[in-house]
Design a protein around this nucleic acid. Structure first.
Lengths: 416, 416
DNA sequence: ACAGTTTCCCGTAAATGC
DNA sequence: TGCATTTACGGGAAACTG
């Protein structure tokens, strides 16, 4: 039953949410003697656990319109649903979290040619099944770790004992996440801050290793979220609310508070930079430096803006309009220069929204972010170092040796 | 097969959304000779149209726990799904919109006692089936009109030729909507404004009649929504964003612009009132009066606040913080007295949110609504009259003459 | 009690039907 | 083409379940 084979397109593990439609396509990689033969393909979900395919899962292969005459079939509107076991025995993966369980779809076909019965079977790359979008970040973590650390196409037990990643490998993957989502990766200084956050001072050694647990399971000391949950919340914030500003490279973002002060302390009064909150998920703040008549330096950071605030007022408008007020005095913007010395309107001007609304009989009204300023202690700066070079990403090179057909594409709204 | 009967609880038509669970309960109104008889009840959706019950629809009756020993059965987790007709013939109600189509659930049971076969059957009050919450307002309109204008328990053809309502009947129902949703009904002045909006000057005559079409199908002249859609958008706004302020009776709300000016013109500078937008769905604005050094009167209305703005900043905080700014001058609140003469902080003070956030290392920041004031023409006031007295609501008095059991309760998240 | 997980369902957007 | 209606599914919250 073994047949000669061809390479398939590169494949990545996917995330599928129960109850949400996904698509998969299978192609036969050799031409069969009789072309019109009705070759039915059946798609099934792995038996190991509690999901089944809700919708019609059998379809006949057909000749691709555009193509070389290959037989192929596309399953659309597939949907996964959880099986309810009445006598509570779920699968065996009790130790792993849902997003660490890897599943797979199988495709089978069987036909007889010249008295010979031929069974064809193949299966998808690993799948993570989630039931709510709130599990998506966990699912992505698994997909990233798997892609980063194994070449095995179908190692469903991967998270039983997941290998460590070197910081050099990992930092590159993290930078890609930003490139993908936001068209701009992370620079060395930003990666260095992330490395120190994850590893302490060891980060300077690029082959220092990061465990799966440290990356996405254990909480950051003193916080209620893991490193990846924190980073992903920032990716989401950028994707939904900061895209133009991020693309313009106006957000330094990943800077420790110490570094921030070191950078700002010698700058002109009113110089500021933007930094992601380390204490809360999905927040961005800005810090500006002020020098009083004695020449004493003072740093002020605004309460971080999160998605709810940013959907009321885009960041560029916040930058334009932010004012500090002291009683009875005309409010004033403390923000003059984006670090190192770019005039604010030059950095953000193109992204400002044109205020005036057209609602004639009415007086237009806008929201202005305001702070009541009080006195504040001066912080001490600390030094900082720079990170290691990136490494080329590994890619799946899926040559299926035994199988005559393979999955061509598979898509789900949760995968890119 | 006719059996003696008892009254059931009052019933109201309901709205059911496809794919969303609902519950219904049926009770047998006489005691059967043999108590332990397994009396199975089957629930079906009316055949006239395109829905079916997705979930298990047959259940045995049981003796109620608490009760007089009546047999009853409760169906939970029922769900409606639309039937797809392949050869496109849907039902016949082509002329009516979905929310005007009335449906019903039927309940049947059959048993034999002493050689006699007895069939029991009953059906629910009319149901409106919707597929998206965006149809809820339309559904409510139907339910209100039905309840208001017929005593027939199951007239599914009601909207084939819906009767008119007198303004006196309708105005009372509208006031109830506000009582139910927001704990405060409408006063005469508010109802009068609504009556004039719907009927012009005829509203003063309380038995003037309103057609179903005028109430909820035709658009208001010059607008893209019907009277009820407009009113319902305000109910929603109150429910989600204005509840405390509405309960305090600080929102006059339904005042024509003419009346508004008539009321404010002789008041002190800085007197304001709150009014719902008539030009846009779900908006609220405030208008204040200003008198310049010549004694000339000027009215200013702010661009209406809608749910998106109000979810960024609650109304009470807007009232507290709203400022008008002229270049280089300290911003000032133009709002001094809630009409007629209540100091602003007295009217809204208890509802202000305490600003200062606890985020220590950061400077707290709030959003302040600001308008850039320009010169504005002065409007001319017009007079206004007051409305008619209310009338007692009619109630369903459901005595089922032929049936031995009836529906006791039926619930769906869309019904109160 | 509680954390991890799933279910529920509104509300927006997109797709579909007429 | 435009409007009415349904479908899709993210996201917040409640319900479930060991």
């Amino acid at each position: 039953e073994k047949q000669p084979c061809m390479a398939t397109h590169p494949q990545k593990p996917l995330i599928i949410k129960t109850g949400v439609q996904f698509t998969t396509k299978v192609r036969l990689l050799v031409k069969l003697p009789e072309v019109d033969y009705q070759l039915k393909v059946k798609t099934t979900f792995d038996k190991s656990r509690q999901f089944f395919i809700l919708t019609n899962n059998t379809k006949a292969m057909d000749i691709e319109d555009y193509s070389n005459g290959c037989l192929s079939v596309e399953f659309r509107h597939l949907q996964l649903k959880e099986k309810k076991y009445i006598n509570g025995t779920k699968g065996s993966e009790g130790l792993l979290s849902v997003t660490e369980e890897l599943h797979s779809l199988s495709f089978e076909a069987c036909f007889t040619v010249q008295g010979l019965t031929i069974d064809l079977e193949t299966s998808s790359l690993p799948l993570v099944v989630i039931s709510n979008v709130s599990q998506l970040p966990g699912g992505w973590a698994s997909v990233m770790w798997y892609n980063l650390l194994t070449d095995e196409p179908r190692n469903l037990a991967f998270f039983g004992n997941p290998p460590r990643a070197t910081w050099s490998q990992l930092s590159e993957v993290l930078s890609w996440q930003f490139s993908t989502v936001a068209d701009r990766g992370l620079n060395k200084a930003q990666l260095n801050m992330l490395g120190e956050k994850l590893l302490g001072q060891h980060a300077s050694c690029s082959d220092f290793q990061v465990s799966w647990s440290k990356f996405s399971k254990e909480n950051i000391p003193g916080k209620s979220f893991s490193f990846w949950m924190w980073l992903d919340s920032i990716l989401e914030l950028i994707k939904k609310h900061l895209l133009p500003v991020w693309k313009e490279d106006s957000i330094m973002g990943f800077v420790s508070k110490e570094m921030e002060r070191a950078l700002l302390k010698d700058r002109e009064s009113g110089t500021f930079l933007l930094r992601f909150s380390e204490s809360h998920l999905g927040g961005i703040t800005f810090t500006w430096v002020e020098r009083d008549h004695n020449g004493d330096v003072k740093f002020n950071s605004v309460e971080p803006y999160t998605k709810s605030r940013l959907s009321a007022l885009p960041l560029a408008d916040i930058m334009r309009d932010y004012k500090v007020i002291s009683d009875g005095v005309v409010p004033e913007s403390p923000l003059k220069f984006l670090y190192p010395d770019i005039p604010k309107d030059e950095a953000f001007g193109l992204l400002y929204n044109s205020l005036p609304s057209k609602a004639y009989p009415y007086i237009p009204s806008t929201l202005i972010p305001i702070s009541q300023l009080r006195s504040r202690p001066i912080a001490t700066p600390i030094s900082c170092q720079s990170p290691e070079p990136p490494m080329t990403p590994r890619e799946f090179d899926m040559l299926s040796e035994q199988l005559c057909f393979d999955i061509e594409t598979m898509s789900s709204p949760y995968s890119d």
